[in-house]
Each structure stands twice: as structure tokens, then as C-alpha cells.
């Protein structure tokens, strides 16, 4: 029998039952490591203009450059090694996805649990607003915000958080409303604890499982959304190219058959997003009480 005192060990034990999820997790860890270490493992610093050779621009994969260096994935319009550009792009995409997901988590969970705790008019007002926001597609909101705020890392994170916190708030509110009625909350309230301690120490930890599921999905979504915005020219500036920017840069060369400039960054993006979604699916199945054996 598996001890219920070690929920993380049990969770991990069940997680290992799914081969697909394990492979996906391995890929995520690998990509995270590549992203973290990209300045040290990339063969070229793609932003150091001195290392770029314009003669080698738009070369196909496997081309041997002027310096005797092999461009395994080809080069882009500025003669940048695509492999290095992708590694650096991954770094930026992962950074933004994690940052936006984390901030949206904090903002949304705080709003949702606080609304459920306070109840009454405040709850109605907050949740009405969130429902209203949820009835609009996140992409439109992010599009308009990043257009208003301009390009840049902080701006895009603000746009993504505004577009996505509502999903966390909705989930946190649902879970916290159920917890609010339970006796342990009554017990905590009867002690002279301040209410923010009851919310964050007692209610919130019990709302975590559904929030974790939302978090994995939303990190994948914010990476995809950022790539889409950058592709449309509204996300990150060309000086800080994420995977979306790389794909956008290659788009104009695609119609002339130079597929690699767009395709390889896209493959990296999709492997990352699909892997996160697969892990998210597995976590959701494990945490869903209706599917529990």
C-alpha cells in the first residue's frame, strides 16, 4: 500500500505509469536545459554582429560556411547560424512563458480565492468581470494590449498576464468556494488569525491541484500566444528574437522555397508546446477525482 502521507511520492509513482508523459517530461527537461545553457552551448552568438558572415546568408542546412564551419540547420537572411538562433530563441520563449504563467497564477489565484472568501457584492463584482473577460478570446485581448503597450519583454508579459489571469481566477474561485464551506475553514476563522492568513495558509493550499493543471496548460498557451504575437509583428522586437520572431523573419523567404528559416524554429516551438500539453494532460487525469481508481 502506498502511504497517503507521501502524496508527492504517490503522484510520481502514478506519473511513471504513463510512458508518453515520461518521454514528454524528459523532452521538457532537455529543452529547459538547452534554453538555460544556450549562451554556452550555442556554436555562435547570433547577436554578435562581428561573427556573422553575410556571404553565408540563406544557406541550406548542412552548408559549410566561409570559416569552415558547418551550419547544420542552415542560415537566415543575415547569415546567422539557425541552430544558435533557435537555442537563443528557446531561451526567450521559455522565459516569457514561465514569467507570464507565474504572474497570472499569482494574480488569478489571489483574486479568485479572495472573492470566494469575501463573498457577497465583492465576489459578484469580481466574478462578473472575470466571466465577461472570459467570453472574449484571449488572443484579441493580448493583441490589443501589446499594440497599445509597444514591443518589449515586460510589455508582452503584461499583455499575456492580462489575457490569461482570468482562467486562474475562475478555477481558484470554483475550488475556494467549495473549501470555504468546510469545517476546517470555520475552525481557522474562529481563531484570531487575520483573514489573509486564512486565505493563503489554509484555503489556497487546498485549491492547488486544479490550479496546477491550469498552470501547465497556460504556460504552453502563453508560449504559443507570444509566438503568435511576435509572428504578427506585435510581440518581441527583432533585437530579442523569440521563436515566433524567427518564424516571422523566415516567412518572406518561404515562398521562394527557403523553408528552413521558418520550419526549424517552428519545429522547436511545437515540440516544446506538445510536450508541455502531454504532461499537463497526464497531471489532469491524475488529479481528477472522477477518474481516481
Amino acid at each position: 500500500m502506498i502511504d497517503s502521507a507521501a502524496p508527492i511520492a504517490r503522484f510520481w509513482f502514478e506519473f511513471r505509469q504513463s510512458q508518453i508523459a515520461c518521454v514528454a517530461l524528459l523532452i521538457i527537461v532537455l529543452i529547459a536545459a538547452l534554453a538555460l545553457l544556450s549562451p554556452w552551448i550555442a556554436p555562435q552568438n547570433p547577436y554578435d554582429l562581428a561573427t556573422l558572415v553575410l556571404m553565408d546568408a540563406r544557406r541550406p542546412p548542412g552548408h559549410v560556411g566561409a570559416g569552415g564551419y558547418v551550419y547544420w540547420l542552415g542560415t537566415d537572411a543575415q547569415g546567422r547560424d539557425l541552430l544558435s538562433a533557435i537555442l537563443y530563441g528557446l531561451r526567450i520563449s521559455v522565459q516569457i512563458g514561465l514569467a507570464a504563467g507565474a504572474v497570472a497564477f499569482v494574480v488569478g489565484a489571489t483574486l479568485g480565492t479572495t472573492a470566494a472568501f469575501l463573498g457577497g457584492r465583492v465576489e459578484m463584482l469580481i466574478m462578473r468581470f472575470i466571466d465577461l473577460q472570459l467570453s472574449f478570446p484571449a488572443i484579441l485581448l493580448a493583441l490589443v494590449l501589446s499594440a497599445l503597450l509597444g514591443q518589449g519583454k515586460v510589455q508582452i508579459i503584461i499583455a499575456l498576464v492580462t489575457a490569461q489571469y482570468a482562467y486562474f481566477a475562475r478555477t481558484a474561485h470554483g475550488a475556494a468556494s467549495a473549501e470555504r464551506a468546510k469545517e476546517y475553514v470555520e475552525a481557522a476563522l474562529s481563531t484570531p488569525l487575520p483573514s489573509h492568513k486564512v486565505i493563503f495558509r489554509h484555503i489556497l493550499p487546498n485549491c492547488l491541484p486544479p490550479l496546477i493543471v491550469v498552470a501547465t496548460v497556460q504556460v504552453a498557451n502563453s508560449i504559443a500566444l507570444e509566438a503568435t504575437l511576435s509572428f504578427l509583428g506585435l510581440g518581441l522586437p527583432v533585437t530579442e528574437p523569440s521563436l515566433g520572431t524567427l518564424i516571422a523573419n523566415g516567412f518572406q523567404y518561404m515562398l521562394s522555397g527557403r523553408y528552413w528559416i521558418s520550419i526549424y524554429p517552428g519545429v522547436a516551438l511545437i515540440v516544446l508546446i506538445v510536450a508541455i500539453n502531454l504532461v499537463g494532460d497526464q497531471i489532469r487525469d491524475q488529479l481528477n477525482p472522477r477518474l481516481r481508481r
Binding site: A220, A224, A227, T228, F231, L232, I247, F251, M254, L255, G257, Y259, S262, I263, G266, L269, I270, I273, V274, N277, L278, D281
Partner: peptide, 29 residues
């Protein structure tokens, strides 16, 4: 369906153009 949910729309669009318009030349881009 997992692919349909995960893969961003713009990327599918690029692959469609690449395949059907550039390589096969069947449909306009």
C-alpha cells in the same frame, strides 16, 4: 486532436502554404 489543440494556428498555416502552394503547387498561397 492533441495536435490541433497544441500547434499554433499560424504555424499550421505556414506548413499548409509550404506544402500545398510551394512544393506541390496545387493551391494558391
Amino acid at each position: 486532436t492533441i495536435l490541433g489543440f497544441s500547434v499554433p494556428t499560424f504555424w499550421i498555416g505556414l506548413v499548409l502554404i509550404m506544402t500545398f502552394a510551394v512544393w506541390l503547387g496545387w493551391l494558391p498561397a
